[in-house]
Amino acid sequence: MQQHTKLKSVNKVLYVSGYTRMVLFNKLIPKAIRDNHFDVFEFDWNSFYSFNRYLNMFPRSFVVKKINAELLKTAINYKPDYIFVLKGEPILNSTLNKIRDEIDTTIFNWFGDDPWEFPYYSGKIAPNYDFFFTYDPYSVSLYKNSGYSKAFHLPYGYDVDFVDSINVSVKDLKKYKCDIAFIGSYYPEREDVLGKLLNKYDIKIWGRGWEKTSFKNVFMGRALYGKEMFKAMKSCKILINIHKGFGQGVEASGEGLNLRVMEAAAAGCFQLTNYQSDIPNRFIPDEEIVLFRDFEELIEKIEFYLNNDEKRKMIASAARKRVVKDHTLRLRMKQLFEIINKEKNG
């Protein structure tokens, strides 16, 4: 599907981590950058928040000030060629400007919560970055229509080797095995879909917010992250993935693939996900991924694939092969820096 050219090596990247819930992805990105022959220094601002949550001593404003002071000091000492911010909620625009005053560097962001955060957050911070990457192709037009020209689409990728290293024990299988799994936070549009599956299938749900709903019989507990999430994926027959904003139009859901699509594919997990227009650009429908547009189609495909084990396993295996070929995180980082270098040298 894609042709890949060799990327010229550069020197240093200061990687500014994303929020705690992406702890595993936070660690895999620097590895993928290093695999592209960069030197990487990791700045994990989550440690400041974790320390303060434990002691409960300081207001949030104090912690944010501390994070930004440490980031400024780190950037000045390390003198990176690039500063890579993954969303970067506590990073202040004033800090980015101070860094530019002190060192010659290129600062960019990879943002994963578009388009719903564009009006009040991502659209406001983007102009402070030299480049702004979003997983959602629809949101690129939002940035450009607002007058910011350095927004680019960069879909997610994943580290298949890491996922392959995760083994599922007999104990794990007993805990996670089910016909249908859903792993994700509560949103009303997700409740609307999953609520219609209750009492019909062997279903298990993990995620924040579900404990407050009527799903208590299938709610298995807190959100799953890291290795535990992949164990659950490897133990279920079907993983259902419902993008935020499903059924509310492109303005709410965007067009891109959420991270769950890549995670499940990397795990060789069969997934049923709602249609997003960028998915067929990344995976072949009905051969590498199965899509639904409404509840009736979802039920039809659940019934079919629960009763066709070999077909289900073939599609899951094909999805994993597609990630290996076109969607590794290492390749995604290579593509990211190719875009930046092309724009800078254009």
Rank of each mutant, 00 (worst) to 15 (best):
L7C: 06
T20G: 00
A151T: 07
V218D: 06
N241M: 01
R330K: 15
Y201F: 15
F152V: 05
Y148F: 15
K311A: 15
L173M: 11
A316Q: 05
N241T: 03
F25Q: 04
A75M: 08
Y225L: 13
A181M: 09
Q335D: 13
I284A: 10
Y176I: 10
P280L: 07
K325N: 10
L173A: 00
P137M: 01
L257T: 06
M229K: 14
K321T: 06
Y156H: 15
Y15L: 06
V23C: 01
K244F: 09
L306C: 08
A181S: 15
G247V: 07
P155K: 07
P30V: 10
E255Y: 10
Y49D: 00
D192S: 12
N167F: 02
K196Y: 07
Y176H: 12
R330L: 05
S94H: 00
K66E: 07
K325V: 02
I183G: 00
E70D: 13
Q248H: 12
L142F: 13
C236N: 06
L7R: 13
F132G: 08
N281H: 13
F51Y: 10
N217T: 12
Y148E: 04
N217D: 15
V323P: 01
K311L: 14
V324K: 15
N217P: 00
P137R: 10
A252Y: 13
I242S: 04
N341K: 14
W116E: 12
E303K: 13
K79P: 01
Y186H: 14
L224G: 10
L71Q: 06
A75I: 07
K177G: 01
I180Q: 08
M220E: 14
V85H: 04
R53I: 10
E191F: 02
L96I: 15
T20F: 12
G18T: 08
I302L: 04
A69C: 01
Y305V: 03
L71I: 07
K31Y: 04
E263N: 08
